[in-house]
Every structure is written in C-alpha cells, then in structure tokens.
C-alpha cells in the first residue's frame, strides 16, 4: 500500500537548513494500524504530511497504492488525496464557519458527490459517531471529544483507504481520548489502514505496529501480536 524508500526532507529558512527526515524507508500494508512515536521535533509530523501527500519529500521515492507519487504536482497529489486519504488532527481543524454537517460533508463536495447522496452519507456517519443530534451545531458549541468525532466523521465520510491521525487525542481528556481511540480501532478493523502519530504509549497500544523515530530516522519497530490488540 505505502512504500517509502530513502526519504529525506529538508527545510530551508533564510540561511539555516534543517533536516527533518533522513534516509527513511517504510512499508505499510493495507489494513495495518501503525503508530509513529518519538520526541518533539523527531520528524513525526513531517513524515505524516508526506504520507498524506500534503508535502513532497526532498529526496527518495514514495509509492502510494502502486502509484509513484514522488514527482506528482500539488494538483495531482490533491486528486489522489481527496479520494484515498482521510485526516484527523490534534487540533481538530474544523472550519468554524461551517456547521457540523457541513464540515463533514466538505470532502464529498470536493468529490462532486450529488447533494442528496451527500446528505444521506453525512447522516449515517454522524449517527455512527454518535453525534447525529449535533448536526446543525457549530464547532465552538461542541466539547473537544465531540469536535474530534466530527473530525473523524469528516475523515472517513468518503471511505478512504488510509486514515492519517496526528495526535488525535492530544487535546482530549482520557475519557474522550479513549472513545476516539476505540472509534479509530473500529475503523481499522473494518479494513481502513490507519497511521497515527502519537506521544502517548497508551494510544500506541491500540495499534498493531509502532515505529519510533529519532532525528528523522527510524530507530525501532515493534510488531504486536494480534492478541495484544484490543
């Protein structure tokens, strides 16, 4: 599903060059649930952005679903992204001016799904996330946990092959955090590939594989026995 070979990413600001990723190779199969962990500044988010086709690597090659995306332009990446990848962020990143239903509907709007179909799918996914009664509310009217559910609903509304989560529980208390993790796990069990960046060992324990980064390199990888997963 995902093949990264010798990926490097360097940022240049004025006269300082920072290396975020260095010679990183990674293979992720369809249906996996992978956690990426590491200290602040180890390159986790950069990696996630590259995986999510939000950013392009400076070096190396990236194959997504058997397509070499390394040299794709932004428009090509956007096209792949909108039908294959869903995102969940620590800070939810909901659009404040849109209602819950409208936020969730947005990916379908960009996929040009007809209105009646959109409505149906939004209703279903909101029900599933347990926030159907909040459809007309605006993000600021919801608790953090509810906002993150909206964000998850938005991420999965177009049934993406891959779900990328960046510290999905970082802004939530443990109760709401657990709820979110259970939802993500459930999605994974239904076949969605999940890649999650996290600081939390607890959250990582939901995944089947944990990759640890340090200074832009993979330093360890541990596979969990299927029984360990919840």
């Amino acid at each position: 599903m995902i093949k990264l070979e010798n990926i490097a990413k360097r940022y240049r600001t004025d006269e300082v060059e920072t290396t975020a990723l260095q010679g990183l190779s990674l293979h992720i199969e369809e249906g996996e649930f992978v956690s990426i962990m590491g200290e602040s500044g180890c390159g986790k988010s950069t990696l996630l952005n590259i995986l999510g086709l939000l950013d392009a690597p400076s070096e190396g090659s990236y194959e997504f679903n058997n397509i070499n995306v390394t040299s794709l332009k932004e428009s090509g990446r956007a096209a792949l992204r909108k039908s294959n990848i869903g995102f969940i962020f620590q800070s939810f990143n909901l659009i404040d001016e849109l209602s819950v239903a409208e936020n969730v509907e947005l990916p379908l709007v960009y996929l040009k799904v007809p209105k009646s179909e959109r409505k149906k799918r939004v209703e279903t996914v909101l029900e599933r996330m347990g926030i159907g009664h909040r459809a007309k509310h605006f993000p600021q009217q919801l608790s953090g946990g509810q906002q993150q559910r909206v964000a998850i609903a938005r991420a999965v509304i177009n049934s993406p092959k891959v779900l990328l989560a960046d510290e999905p529980t970082g802004n939530l208390d443990s109760h709401h955090g657990n709820e979110v993790m259970e939802l993500i796990t459930q999605l994974n069990q239904e076949g969605t590939t999940v890649i999650m960046v996290t600081h939390s060992e607890h959250d990582a324990s939901f995944s089947k594989r944990t990759i640890r980064l340090l200074d832009g390199k993979v330093i360890s990888e541990n596979q969990k026995a299927p029984s360990q997963a919840i």
Binding site: S83, I95, Y110
Partner: peptide, 16 residues
Amino acid sequence: AKEVGIRKTLGSSRSE
C-alpha cells in the same frame, strides 16, 4: 489561511 489549509487537505482544488 487555516481554512485554506483544511480545505486543501480535504481535497479542494485551487480553482475552487
């Protein structure tokens, strides 16, 4: 800009 980022992440094209 934040809104632009979110919309782009969710698949909005520049022309949209």
